[in-house]
């Protein structure tokens, strides 16, 4: 919505304003298994808190021409920071903003895979795995040396 308040429109007045909502929609990655898993034809969005189901449907059908069938929304309350643990006497110090999420069901046969936004991460992940393995091997070697410190370098095939 615009921040400027305009005079209330009365029936019969000219329509000299254009409604420019600052609605936005963000596609999120849905869970593939577990209690939050969704079918393939359901997309999961975070949306502007003032958007209704109708708005979400209109947004996706009019702008992106998606075959929307059903929209469900959920509001997640922001976290509250309390000044005390006691639930009876505590007072709120700060509250984070609420968030609204939309579950949009598309037509049958619709499929969408969430894009890999940061492919470089995989390389880093693999590198870090190699590093971790090297560290593990170093520790094992150190432990083995410590365990056989009294063996005076006798060959390992004598014992375990």
């Amino acid at each position: 919505m615009t921040t400027r308040l305009y005079r209330a429109w009365q029936p019969g007045n000219p329509q000299n304003r254009v409604f420019l909502p600052n609605f936005w929609i963000k596609l999120l990655n849905r869970a593939s298994k577990g209690p939050k898993a969704l079918p393939e034809n359901v997309l999961y969005f975070e949306v502007h808190p003032q958007m209704t189901r109708h708005d979400v449907r209109e947004y996706l059908t009019k702008i992106y021409e998606l075959p929307v069938r059903d929209v469900n929304t959920r509001v997640k309350m922001g976290k509250i920071e309390w000044d005390s643990v006691d639930t009876k006497t505590r007072r709120a110090l700060w509250k984070e903003d609420d968030k609204k999420f939309a579950y949009v069901t598309m037509c049958r046969g619709f499929k969408h895979d969430f894009p890999n936004l940061f492919p470089d991460d995989e390389i880093e992940k693999e590198t870090s795995q190699v590093e971790r393995h090297k560290e593990l091997m170093r520790n094992l070697e150190r432990n083995a040396k410590a365990a056989s410190r009294d063996r005076n370098d006798v060959g390992t095939w004598f014992g375990l």
Partner: peptide, 14 residues
Amino acid sequence: SYWGVADDEADADV
């Protein structure tokens, strides 16, 4: 009608 089920192939059996 709320879902906007059309008579196309994808929604034929819904």
